[in-house]
Write a protein that binds this DNA or RNA. Structure first.
Lengths: 334, 334
DNA sequence: CTGAAAGCGCTTACAG
DNA sequence: CTGAAAGCGCTTACAG
């Protein structure tokens, strides 16, 4: 069996209360007893049972993370950053992928709640219908990362100003002289997709270009939809001159179609994507894109969450909303 | 406060023991009481406190995962698979990246141990010096995924036969008529790198080609080393005709150098990589590579682990070692 | 089949 | 500053 606090108490000749106080620095202990305790702890290699402690303190020192797709490098980076910050602070992280599916998401929200996580960081599947009340209702602090959830007024959030990102991309294309600029959009149930579309429309107007609904195709942020919509768009007799593609995976699919059709980029078709990746600078030509500070999103979100966890729960502060800025990286595809 | 078992017991008019028995199906309960309990549970929405249960049962239903680099799609896939399997079985997963660093790895091994995880799945940083004894010594079952750990005789493992993978790659290049075939190797402290190098040498000999040590460059599985060694190799007056690159990240770096030098592939330089990825089929020309069943590795490893956890701990079975087969995907780079 | 009670390993009022 | 004791919410012998 593993050592317990009683073993240390006996070895050091003190009460278990004293051992606990030394280990947690929770109350003053005389220097002498403190040293006796620490020497026993070190010599015997004692580690407190975190379950017993959690049961008493009603804390698990675990935070949950739910993202739409952990295999997408965009979210992998966010998770990685959040994890780094959490581990540093003595928390452990548990991650799940909702697969952009409300039922799966709901299931994992329940799992987190049943697991008694101290807090959660979530990139929601749906900006209206995602339901985090099993957590928030149980007073578990939740931070929204990357995506807004419309009803969630008491949650902190860290997002990227992708509306401006899309606007920058369109401005860039317009300056290059492209007039017919299409957009392969993400699912509008996701706030980032809605924002990107907004930015696209707004920038078209700002540059005196018409907003043509037939040039707006609705995808779902998957590679498959990039392929499907790419084909649909590029087969048209009146194909556009340029395309804004709303995320990395759809760009992957779109690029395959461009190759499949043997189009020369940017001569036959120009495009701008969202999200930098290992391959975006490697393909021919390299892809112009709106880069998002993914690591920063994860880091900032976890920091907000830890603030809540370490802060005074009795007097919760106002929800904080951090908005980070994207960057346009101009390369050969535009 | 959240509901506790006592609340249900009172509501249903039974003892807490009965509630526990119904919820866990641990002992027979009469149909009538069972129904009373279940109706109370459902009506009130009771969820057992997993900490209290864990404290009693000495189980957390948490499994730990440590991989060298969660941002590498290769490991992301493994983790994703393991996670899917674990969640399905009612376990939750906690993940950490060792960054291929023994100190960090050691730290996370300790974290997992202190967290009282029921089991762990690890892709070790070093085939000799990784130390999992804090876990195995505490009778926590460990499954090695992707990489062997030489001393760990009591651990199950799931690996890929990359020696054969490398041999297939070299055989392919030899058949294509390449004579001077270099290798950008991974760090030999990692079993997969050692195996790949073995397979490379073996296949050269099998095809009557000399093993030239000057054509074997030691990298560390990072993109940076792919760049560095790529430059070193391709600048030589007697540059090789073909190269085998031992993983996806080094290929990324190597490919950048090929572009930087303006080399035509495969005319000026042919190469074969390990690990399929989103971009490998997208670049020009697409990359010939040894594909590994990453999802299968994660799935199989977690299944072995769950077998241990659900099995009879008193009579542990022999360690199991699964070896999966890689596939050669021939594309334009060779 | 059912219940009263012990005990898992901690933390923290409470009393001194 | 220190210790004895209660209690966190469960599971499981033990007795019936």
């Amino acid at each position: 069996m593993a050592l317990k606090i009683k073993d240390i108490a006996e070895d050091a000749g003190v009460s278990i209360a004293t051992v606990s106080r030394v280990l947690n620095n929770s109350q003053p202990v005389s220097k002498e007893l403190r040293e006796r305790v620490m020497s026993s702890v070190n010599r015997l290699g004692y580690r407190p049972n975190i379950l017993a402690r959690g049961l008493r303190m009603k804390r698990t020192f675990v935070v949950g993370i739910i993202v739409p797709n952990i295999s997408n490098a965009y979210f992998t980076d966010i998770v990685r950053a959040a994890e780094d910050v959490a581990l540093e602070a003595g928390y452990v992280v548990t991650v799940a992928s909702s697969d952009q599916d409300l039922v799966r998401e709901r299931r994992y929200v329940d799992v987190l709640r049943n697991r008694l996580v101290d807090g959660a960081l979530v990139a929601v599947a749906h900006r209206f219908e995602s339901d985090l009340t099993p957590l928030t209702g149980a007073d578990v602090p939740v931070v929204l990362a990357d995506r807004r959830l419309e009803g969630c007024t008491d949650c902190d959030s860290v997002t990227v100003d992708v509306r401006q990102g899309a606007a920058m991309a369109v401005a860039h294309l317009a300056q290059r002289g492209y007039q017919r600029i299409a957009m392969i959009s993400g699912p509008l149930d996701v706030s980032t997709a809605a924002d990107k579309l907004d930015g696209y429309k707004q920038a078209l107007s700002a540059h005196g270009l018409p907003v043509d609904d037939s040039l707006i195709l609705m995808g779902d942020y998957t590679e498959e939809s990039g392929v499907r919509l790419g084909r649909e768009l590029l087969q048209r007799p009146d194909a556009p001159q340029a395309v804004l593609v709303a995320n990395n995976l759809m760009t992957l699919g779109f690029f395959r179609v461009v190759q499949e059709f043997g189009l020369r980029v940017p001569h036959d078709i120009a495009f701008v994507s969202f999200d930098d990746s290992a391959w975006a600078s490697l393909v021919t030509p390299p892809v112009t894109l709106v880069d998002q500070p993914t690591y920063e999103v994860g880091r900032a979100a976890m920091e907000l969450l830890l603030d809540r966890l370490e802060g005074d729960e009795a007097r919760p502060s106002e929800p904080k909303h951090q908005v980070l800025r994207p960057t346009l990286i101009v390369r050969g595809s535009s």
